[in-house]
């Protein structure tokens, strides 16, 4: 296990995995809250064109991917904002256009081939360069500053957009910022998890965490922990099994989801038993004040 750290490429891969494990669920939680879990998927497709442009221009594909996917994410947000009647068609054009554009451009670039794209599609631990690590560190710092620093504002916007607007929050700005942050997260994650699987790391840790949590804060904390756990263990697995890390990370995340889906209901049941005991005490205390009839809908609904 320790000898892993003797390889410089593994040091870089594990550092990248750690940052991705933190950043992806920290942004993904807002997309899940807004029931837009699929948005990361779309950004991943669009980022493909950005990666290919990097090859064409012979620059680091991370930066061109950030640029193109941010533009794509802003376009998606505008489509949502203006509630376009055929919004789903507009999104499809964007997604498939991004994917096809990527394949087209990479094959036009000198010396480029689909094989180059493959490491970006499913991740690769051996190809995370020192420059990639620098980019990943800088970009994840931005992602975490936004997703944790503005968590109350983003929570309010994703929970109830109309209320947030009446509160005077700059809702449109926050939505655009969230879209750009999601795009940056996709490019942070693409070296390790790959573009086709990146949205899984944004969504699955959150889905797993909320099987056992009741509050937003604990869901955020637990999903980031879950993200780090599966990203690191998936990267190590991929070293030993010689498979793309995206695959092992996502399968581990699904396994964690399944585990918590089994454990979750047991926890909820134990809690509601404790809650019922608490409720009885509470009721006994209040019986003297309230002669009001029993709330007919008041029975606790357990998800």
């Amino acid at each position: 296990m320790i000898e892993l750290l003797d390889y410089p490429f593994m040091q870089r891969a594990l550092l990248a995995a750690l940052l991705v494990g933190v950043a992806a669920p920290a942004v993904g939680i807002y997309l899940v809250q807004r029931r837009q879990a699929i948005m990361g998927e779309g950004i991943g497709h669009v980022a493909m064109t950005g990666v290919a442009l990097g090859f064409l221009l012979s620059t680091n594909p991370v930066w061109t991917a950030v640029l193109v996917s941010a533009l794509g994410a802003v376009a998606m947000e505008l489509i949502r904002w203006y509630g376009m009647a055929r919004g789903d068609i507009a999104l499809s054009l964007l997604f498939y256009g991004g994917l096809a554009g990527g394949v087209m451009i990479i094959n036009l670039s000198p010396g480029g081939s689909n094989a180059d794209l493959l490491t970006y599609l499913f991740g690769s631990i051996t190809t995370v360069s020192p420059e990639d690590v620098t980019a990943i560190v800088v970009l994840s710092a931005f992602v975490l500053a936004v997703s944790l620093g503005l968590r109350r504002q983003l929570f309010a916007v994703c929970q109830d957009e109309e209320f947030a607007r009446v509160t005077g929050l700059p809702v449109r700005l926050l939505n655009l910022l969230l879209a750009v942050t999601a795009a940056v997260t996709v490019t942070v994650a693409m070296r390790v998890v790959g573009l086709l699987l990146v949205s899984a790391l944004m969504v699955l840790p959150v889905a797993a965490a909320q099987q056992v949590t009741r509050s937003f804060a604990s869901t955020l904390a637990l999903s980031v922990s879950a993200g780090v756990l599966v990203a690191l263990s998936g990267t190590v697995t991929s070293f030993y099994a010689d498979v793309p890390p995206g695959a092992s990370i996502v399968l581990l995340a699904i396994a964690l989801f399944a585990l918590l889906a089994v454990v979750g209901p047991l926890l909820v049941r134990a809690r509601s038993r404790a809650g019922a005991r608490h409720g009885e005490r509470h009721e006994a205390r209040h019986k003297t004040h309230h002669e009001a009839p029993e709330d007919p809908e008041g029975a606790t609904v357990v998800r």
């Binding site: 939680i29 899940v32 809250q33 807004r34 029931r35 879990a37 929570f155 994703c158 929970q159 109830d160 959150v206 909320q210 949590t213 009741r214 509050s215 937003f216 804060a217 869901t219």
Partner: peptide
């Protein structure tokens, strides 16, 4: 009052 992620009454 519910979104796609759990939230407490206080939150």
């Amino acid at each position: 009052a519910a979104g796609g992620v759990p939230a407490t009454v206080r939150e």
